[in-house]
Simulated scan of single mutants.
Amino acid sequence: MITFESTLDAVSQLSIDQQEMLIDILRKRNAEVRRREILEECHEGLTEYRAGVLKSQSAEEAIAELRSYLDTEDCVKC
């Protein structure tokens, strides 16, 4: 099994140019993964909207609902 530490050790043995290429590749891959996640979330939201699980709201309604949520004890991250 490859560990994080062994990976860092292997990367440190690369030249600076190779390390920079690796960083660039990882950033692009991470961006692509995030794009896929966002797309999946959009598809899920659209499916829920079409099924009537979600309703459309005005900006004012959405802000009021968000404020109400933030004022509750359910908002643990606040």
Rank of each mutant, 00 (worst) to 15 (best):
K28M: 11
I16S: 11
E20D: 14
E20G: 05
N30Q: 15
E41R: 01
E20K: 07
E32T: 05
Q13C: 04
I25V: 13
I38G: 01
E40D: 06
V33A: 11
E20P: 00
I23H: 12
E20F: 07
L14N: 11
I25H: 12
K28S: 13
L22R: 05
R29L: 15
V11L: 12
D17M: 05
K28P: 02
R27D: 07
E40I: 00
A31R: 11
I23E: 14
M21E: 14
L22M: 14
L26R: 09
V11R: 03
L39Q: 08
R36C: 01
A31G: 01
I23V: 07
L22A: 11
L22W: 06
D17H: 08
Q13F: 03
E20S: 10
L14G: 09
R34F: 11
L26W: 10
A10Q: 08
R36V: 07
V33D: 12
E40S: 07
L26A: 15
R27P: 00
K28R: 14
L22E: 08
E20N: 12
I25R: 14
L8V: 06
I16M: 04
D17P: 03
D24M: 02
L26C: 06
L14S: 06
Q13H: 04
S12E: 15
V33M: 08
Q19D: 05
A31C: 00
V11N: 02
D17C: 01
S15G: 08
E41Y: 00
E37Q: 12
V33I: 06
L8Q: 13
M21Y: 06
I38A: 04
E20W: 06
L26E: 14
Q18F: 06
E32G: 02
E37M: 07
R27N: 09
E32C: 03
V33T: 08
S15H: 09
S15P: 09
Q19H: 05
R29E: 15
I25K: 14
M21R: 13
I25D: 15
V33F: 05
L8E: 09
A10F: 07
V11F: 06
A31F: 04
E20I: 03
R35V: 09
E32N: 05
N30T: 08
Q19P: 03
A10C: 02
D9T: 00
L39C: 04
V33R: 07
E32S: 12
I16W: 06
D24P: 01
E41P: 00
R36I: 09
Q13D: 07
L14P: 10
E37K: 05
D24S: 12
D9R: 08
I25N: 14
I25S: 13
D9P: 01
I23D: 12
A10W: 09
E37W: 00
A31S: 07
I38Y: 04
R35C: 02
A10E: 13
S15A: 10
S15E: 11
D24G: 09
R35E: 04
E40M: 01
I38D: 09
E41K: 01
Q13M: 04
N30C: 13
L39E: 10
R34H: 12
E32H: 10
L14V: 09
A31Y: 03
S12I: 07
E41L: 03
